[in-house]
Design a protein around this nucleic acid. Structure first.
Lengths: 195, 195
DNA sequence: CGAATGACAGATTTCAATATCTGTCATTCG
DNA sequence: CGAATGACAGATATTGAAATCTGTCATTCG
């Protein structure tokens, strides 16, 4: 495994993801990561001060992938704000559901990590509600949404749809009525937002 | 402890609650319950076929207490449906928050039990959404809510407010912005429901 | 006779000894 | 000289033997 390459934070993060995928969150040790890279664990500590810091970096990376994918929809001015909001929420739900369904163990692993890294999750949520706020603001500017504080409305929309993006509910995402439930909630929220 | 009284299911349930309060869900055994009652554990098995059945009965009891308290609001025809919906949701949030705050360990205990007893929880949720459906139906009849399927709307309202009644979120119920968040979500939902 | 018991087999939990891990740092390596 | 190592102390996790629990049932008790 190209052990001649320089040991970078990036390579360590990749190895960490691999170890997490293989062993799960409880049994993934710094020693395992070092072994996977063919170095001593002391070398890993040169790049990440603690195991928690390493886990946080890996978690942040994973969360950022979701944010980036959604950012495109949030900024797509070619769609009217109502459609954009609907699409954004649907994309969020679909992305989460796909991740949870494709590799349930890896998803569970990251859910555990997310539970530990409260700070990283808070940032991620801020990022997502920020995107939602942009959509709502555009809607207010276009006169299709009510003129209340867009940040407050965006936060309310995010919280009200928690069942469709919070990993705690992952088990219910594949039940028969999930899509209908999602539609009903989004429909109700959109009506509440409209001017 | 009145060991002379007849051994009834009711007495067993009371003793079980006491044992759960003392030992927590993981360490509450059928033997403990029997000991607390001064009988052999075989006698307990005469009334409840398994430990799971005993836990389910206790859980059901606990859930039913919440349902009953809210039923009064749901059926209070003296309030207009909008106010009733708001009051009902606020009462649900307040009740949960109080239980979680007053005795966090007991609340955690019951949350664990609820996680095990999927069936009992599903029934409880059906009961609550039933009450919500009644309020929404009354609102439709009075012309203040839209004429969509009240059961669907009620379910959507219940799910959208999950953050304020689902025990999984209990940790966030005492954060500073919780009340404001609740108001924002309820306001948005009420607007969405209005005709 | 029905209600309660307690001994029992197999499953689960506890506990303490053992092994592994985390994080540091004096030393080695290139 | 900076990057990497590996020995180390204290913390955490694993293991397997012993204790306890669950659920059954033949027997006792009132």
């Amino acid at each position: 495994m190209a052990a001649t390459e320089t040991l970078t934070a990036e390579r360590i993060l990749e190895a960490t993801e691999e170890v997490l995928r293989r062993h799960g969150p409880a049994k993934a040790t710094v020693v395992d990561v070092a072994r996977a890279l063919g170095v001593s664990h002391g070398s890993v500590y040169r790049h990440f001060r603690t195991k928690a810091a390493l886990r946080e970096a890996v978690t942040k990376r994973w969360l950022d992938r979701t944010s980036e994918a959604l950012d495109g929809i949030a900024g797509d001015a070619s769609l009217d704000p109502g459609t954009r909001l609907r699409d954004w929420l649907a994309a969020l739900f679909t992305a989460k559901r796909r991740k949870a369904g494709d590799d349930p163990e890896l998803f569970a692993t990251y859910s555990v990590l997310a539970g530990e890294q409260v700070g990283a999750v808070a940032e991620h949520i801020d990022e997502l509600t920020g995107q939602l706020t942009r959509i709502v603001s555009d809607g207010v500017a276009a006169g299709v949404f009510r003129g209340d504080d867009p940040a407050v409305s965006a936060r309310a929309v995010f919280q009200a749809t928690g069942r469709f993006h919070d990993p705690a509910y992952a088990g219910e995402w594949d039940e028969p009525g999930a899509d209908a439930d999602f539609e009903a909630v989004v429909e109700l929220l959109l009506r509440g937002l409209r001017a």
